[in-house]
Write a protein that binds this DNA or RNA. Structure first.
Length: 123
DNA sequence: GCACTGACGCGGG
DNA sequence: TCCCGCGCCAGTG
């Protein structure tokens, strides 16, 4: 049984503001399952969240673009972010964004609104 | 049912 | 601060 977790994750991902980045753990947390960060990555990789998901705005806790395969080309994620005005720089570990500056910092209000949305949708 | 895997995260040294 | 090891949990074979 797949879980409302993916439905929730889809909603949260679509709510990531233009020009901002979120982490897997952050999304999992907003979904009410802090321990499920890995499932977020899995879901995005397999296109489990459906169409219209800004997957390029999701990075790991260190701000590294996981670089992976769900994009047409290897530098696709980087290009999409730069197009949104996000600064992406190269490190030995890969392309990285400045989470201090371009990270999506959630307010307590946002977190509660998500809970309310989930509740009203019964998921 | 068992074991392995992975777009991950955190705490300790 | 950087690194390493361990923990997590749904999917998959």
């Amino acid at each position: 049984m797949s879980f409302d977790f993916y439905k929730r994750a889809a909603i949260v991902c679509r709510a990531i503001p233009y020009g901002k980045t979120a982490t897997y753990g952050q999304i999992a947390l907003l979904c009410g399952k802090p321990e499920n960060a890995r499932q977020v990555g899995y879901a995005l990789n397999r296109g489990r969240l459906g169409e219209g998901i800004p997957a390029h705005r999701v990075v790991n806790a260190r701000g590294i673009l996981s670089g992976a395969a769900a994009f047409e080309t290897a530098d696709m994620q980087k290009r999409l972010l730069e197009k949104e005005g996000v600064m992406v720089h190269f490190t030995p570990d890969g392309w990285q964004v400045d989470r201090k500056k371009d990270g999506w910092h959630n307010t307590m209000d946002e977190a509660m609104q998500f809970q309310q949305i989930f509740g009203s949708l019964g998921i």
